[in-house]
Simulated scan of single mutants.
Amino acid sequence: MNIGYLILAHKNPEQLGRLVDRLCFSGSFIYIHVDKKVDISDFTKAINMKEGVHFVNNRVSANWGAFSLVEATINGLKEMINNKDVEYISLLSGQDYPIKKNNEIINFFEERKGKEFIHFDPFPTKELINGGMDRIEYYYDYDNEVMKKDQYETEMKSMGVKREFIKNMKPYHGSQWWSLTRECVKYVLDYVDANREVINFYRYTRFSDEQIFQTIIMNSKFSKNVVNNNLRYIDWSNIDKIKLDWIKNPPHPKVFSILDYPSLLKSRCLFARKFDENIDKVILDRIDSILSK
């Protein structure tokens, strides 16, 4: 089985090079989207350009919580889908790392061929404050560097107006990261091209990268093949819900250290996030020592 990886990167070129080396094998294809805000030459120097490793040409300036993250993902997928050898596609960040060997990852997807692995939950959800409905009921423009990120929301609430969701669709949300079959990815790309109202709606939502794929897939024939699991080990235990503020103190997952190694070793997930070699490089060395055996 041939595995494709789309990696969204914006920092730590050397760590990205390490990730690429770890994922490389005879049946892997790796496409890297480097945030347009940073110098791509730092990343090209750090990457061992083996066969099957590519940089996404159509780069965008990607911003946290903004639609530009969806654009970066779609641009990368459009280049990947032209490679007819890719059978499964996993979306990763440059701070992710596999915690299983390549042959174990291959066997996992081979044994579950046709299954889509994406975390989803319908709106309103118990996972988010007030069901998370604010994410789709008000306008947001997190790619606009001039206006305040919650300006539209404040104005709409003062006027007592809300957005209507896309007709004949049920909204979903979930984790940004997933592993999908080639057929499912192709469906999503074709769908957004043919239904521009979906793009127009999600362009002005909060955290569209955690909604658009779930919504399109769960409203399609592929929903029957979905496993509600993104196969990622992510620790959110560092979040202080009392001090949480989407603008001033947004939530980010815990950065793993060597103290987390026992939990990572026990996990049945294929990948984990997130890591930062500038904070703790030893944990990556320890994982490599196991995966290299």
Rank of each mutant, 00 (worst) to 15 (best):
F120T: 02
Q15F: 15
I74C: 04
K36R: 08
P98A: 00
N12Q: 11
K274P: 04
G94Q: 06
I136R: 02
K36Q: 00
G65E: 06
E51Y: 13
I129N: 08
T205A: 09
I217P: 00
E197C: 01
D85R: 13
L128P: 11
K113E: 12
N219V: 06
D280Q: 06
P171S: 12
K274G: 00
F213P: 08
N82K: 10
G27T: 15
R206V: 08
R163Q: 13
I283E: 02
D121W: 06
S179F: 05
R196M: 10
N278K: 13
P98G: 00
D143R: 03
L231G: 05
K243N: 15
V227F: 03
E104C: 13
E51Q: 14
N228D: 05
R273T: 02
V56C: 12
A46P: 10
V146I: 10
N278H: 05
K115R: 14
M169W: 13
M49Q: 15
D276C: 04
T44S: 12
M218L: 13
Y142K: 02
E104N: 14
P13I: 02
L77K: 03
I239Q: 15
Q211E: 13
P250K: 07
K274M: 07
H10I: 11
I279Y: 08
R268L: 09
S93D: 11
G94D: 12
N48Y: 14
N144F: 05
L8D: 07
L264M: 14
K274L: 03
V38L: 00
G52A: 13
N278A: 06
L244W: 15
I3K: 05
Y97P: 05
S158I: 07
V34K: 01
D42Q: 03
K113M: 10
I239Y: 14
K37S: 09
E137P: 00
K50S: 12
G52E: 11
I279M: 02
G52V: 02
E197F: 00
S257K: 00
S175W: 09
V282I: 09
D288R: 15
R232E: 04
N12Y: 14
K11P: 08
R268K: 12
N238K: 06
N57T: 15
V198G: 00
L231D: 02
D285W: 15
M218W: 06
D39Y: 08
R59G: 10
R273N: 07
Q151W: 09
S289H: 14
K243Y: 15
K248C: 06
L265F: 14
K162G: 07
A9N: 08
L128A: 14
S208K: 01
V282M: 14
R135L: 03
D235G: 00
D260Y: 08
K162Y: 01
N75R: 01
I283T: 05
D35C: 09
V192I: 01
N228L: 05
V255A: 06
S61W: 14
K100V: 07
S93M: 04
M218V: 03
I212H: 01
K186Q: 13
K149R: 08
D141G: 06
Q211S: 07
I30S: 12
P13F: 09
K50D: 10
D276A: 01
D193Q: 11
G65K: 03
L16F: 12
L284C: 05
M1A: 10
N230I: 11
H119V: 07
S175I: 03
H252C: 11
H33Q: 11
K84E: 11
L180S: 08
Y138V: 02
K78T: 09
Q15G: 13
Q95V: 10
N144I: 10
F256V: 03
L16D: 01
V34I: 15
F201T: 10
